[in-house]
Design a protein around this nucleic acid. Sequence first.
DNA 1: GGTCGGGGCTAACGGCGTTAGCCGCCCCCT
DNA 2: AGGGGGCGGCTAACGCCGTTAGCCCCGACC
Lengths: 173, 173
Amino acid sequence: MPDAPAPAPLTERQRQIARAARQLLDAEGPDAVTMRRIADVLGIKAPSLYKHVPDKTALEALLITEGFVELAEALEAVAGRLPALGRAYRRYALHHPHLYRLMNYRPLRRDLLPPGVEDRAAFPLLAAVGHDGDRARALWAFAHGMVSLEIDGRFPPGADLDEAWRAGLAAFG
Amino acid sequence: MPDAPAPAPLTERQRQIARAARQLLDAEGPDAVTMRRIADVLGIKAPSLYKHVPDKTALEALLITEGFVELAEALEAVAGRLPALGRAYRRYALHHPHLYRLMNYRPLRRDLLPPGVEDRAAFPLLAAVGHDGDRARALWAFAHGMVSLEIDGRFPPGADLDEAWRAGLAAFG
DNA sequence: GGTCGGGGCTAACGGCGTTAGCCGCCCCCT
DNA sequence: AGGGGGCGGCTAACGCCGTTAGCCCCGACC
């Protein structure tokens, strides 16, 4: 297991920084999440952030961790029935599109994440298809494809996405 | 139809610029595609590029158009049978991961693309499911999800992606 | 009471996309 | 043949980005 040896709990200041970053991300999108903007929110200067966080990548890892925990909670709340799981996945992604992109639109820096957090979010999906890894990955791909294309406005304006979800999920039931 | 009124064929210099950008993208990834690097390849200075291209967004649109045409050609070559279509989609994405991301990981600036180029790439998918829009979108989401998660290394190391593809495509057959 | 370190600060670097303004050269028109 | 215009280079510079170096204050602790 070449992953992180210890989670190292956050200091108060680190939590404040993560909160400021999250707030900027949700409210204005990824371009607003700059070290200077974050510092502004806290009433300090950008270089001072580096007394608390090694770099921006580590800061993003905090937000990604937050996202995985929230997504896991959302999925666990409806675990079991497959259509409800799909709705919960879609609902979370659409409510936090910027964070969803941060989490899922790039290679994951697993070395910067607390161990287990990714597996926890994946578990409800896996369980919903009877712990069949191949079908779970296909289902995940479908769900991720649907929400990412929806988030990015790639479907035609009139498209009935509920129906596309139904058509896709029916196949995996 | 609020889209582009005329395609406006490219000048020789514009084609050279697009070629230089494509070469940097394929060889070194998106971070290498800067106006200065592109200018270096052509032996000129960055500001001179603006005599030929309005801005970087328009330049990216040239690459995205290229990508859609290439993807359409790849899909048309195997049009009909569904598993082959999936293999062709996956094959193209994996051979040009940086361009695939440029094309598909963000909202599409359709106003900067020649009309019809997006529909042309989508047509083989649509035809493969008997022109059922909902199922076509579900299939597209599955394919996009699979390749994007694979490109970003999000699947576990040992995962049998051929099997996941088979499991997913079987549902849409 | 002296030391030390946590946590601020300013200044600065190199990179980014982009704009303003200049100029040389070639082509075309008279 | 002479003159004008515009194409397509150039340099300098702006405001942004992440990040580093180096300084200093202040409070806690021996």
